[in-house]
Computed example of a mutant assay.
Amino acid sequence: MATATKWVIDPMHSEVQFKVKHLVISTVSGFFKSFEGSLTSESDDFEGASVEFTIDINSIDTNQTQRDEHLKSADFFDAEKYPNLKFKSTSFTKAGDDEYKLTGDLTIKDVTKPITLDVEYGGSADDFYGNTKAGFEVTGKINRKEFGLTWNGITEAGAIVAGEDIKITINAQFAKQA
C-alpha cells in the first residue's frame, strides 16, 4: 500500500488572484496576500490527492484601499464575521497529461457550495536546498451571488458596477514534507 505524501503550499512562490468585470467594460484584478494550503497524495501523479486551502479575507488587495475596505465590509465578504474563505476537495482526477479537475466544497461567508476548478501540473523540481517542489496553476470561475456576495451597485446611467462572475487563478508551489 502506498504511503501518503503531504505537500504544503510555499506562500513565497505562490499567488491567489481574482478578476471581476467593472462597469461591464473593464476588468479589476485583485490578490489575497495571506493564505495556506496543503495537498496529500498517495501517488506520484497526484491522482486522487486531497487538497485544502484557506484564504485570509483581510489580506485582500485590489491596489485601492477604499475598494478593499468595501470588499471586507458586510456588503461583500463581511470579514469581521467570516475572516476566512475555505476550500476542501472531494476529488482530484486526471483529465489529460498534466491536466486535472479539482472538485470540492468552497465556503465563503456561511455558504458552502461545490465547485470544479481546472488544474495544470507544471512539474516538480528540487530547489537549492534539496527541497522537492511541485507547481500547479488552478483556474476557474464562480458566481459571487451564489456565495452571498450580493451587493449590486448601479450607476446613474444604469450600468452595473461589479460583475457576477469571478475568475480565479491560483499559482501554487507546494513543498514536499519529509
Rank of each mutant, 00 (worst) to 15 (best):
A134P: 02
D56E: 15
E120C: 09
K6Y: 04
F174T: 02
V28K: 11
S50P: 05
G30V: 11
Q17N: 15
D61W: 08
F87Y: 09
T103G: 12
A162P: 02
K21Q: 11
T65D: 15
N152G: 08
A4I: 03
S29I: 09
D165P: 07
S29N: 14
D127K: 06
D61Y: 12
T93L: 05
T169M: 09
K176F: 05
F136I: 08
I9N: 03
T40A: 10
I108L: 05
I55P: 06
I57K: 03
I142S: 04
A4P: 00
T62M: 15
T132S: 06
T132H: 03
F174D: 03
L85I: 15
T27G: 02
E156D: 01
A95P: 07
T169G: 14
G140K: 02
N171A: 05
I115H: 10
M1Y: 13
A134H: 11
V28R: 05
N58Y: 14
T116L: 02
T139F: 02
D44Y: 00
S29C: 14
Q17Y: 12
G122D: 11
N171L: 06
H22F: 06
I60Q: 11
D97S: 14
T3G: 13
F46T: 10
K167W: 12
G158L: 13
N63K: 15
F53H: 07
K86Y: 02
M1G: 14
A162L: 15
N131D: 05
F53S: 10
T107N: 10
S34I: 10
T155R: 05
P114F: 01
L23T: 04
G135I: 01
D56Q: 15
A4T: 08
V8A: 08
A162S: 13
E146G: 00
E69Y: 05
Q17T: 14
D61F: 03
T112W: 05
G158I: 07
V20E: 10
D10W: 06
E42F: 06
D61S: 08
F128H: 07
G163N: 03
G140L: 01
S124G: 01
D44C: 12
F53G: 04
G37D: 00
L117A: 04
V24E: 12
D44G: 09
M1Q: 11
F136C: 10
G163V: 03
D110G: 01
L106R: 07
I168Q: 11
H70C: 01
D61L: 13
I60K: 04
S50C: 06
E99A: 14
L106F: 02
I166K: 06
T169Y: 09
L23W: 00
Y129A: 12
F147G: 03
E15P: 00
T3C: 09
S34H: 12
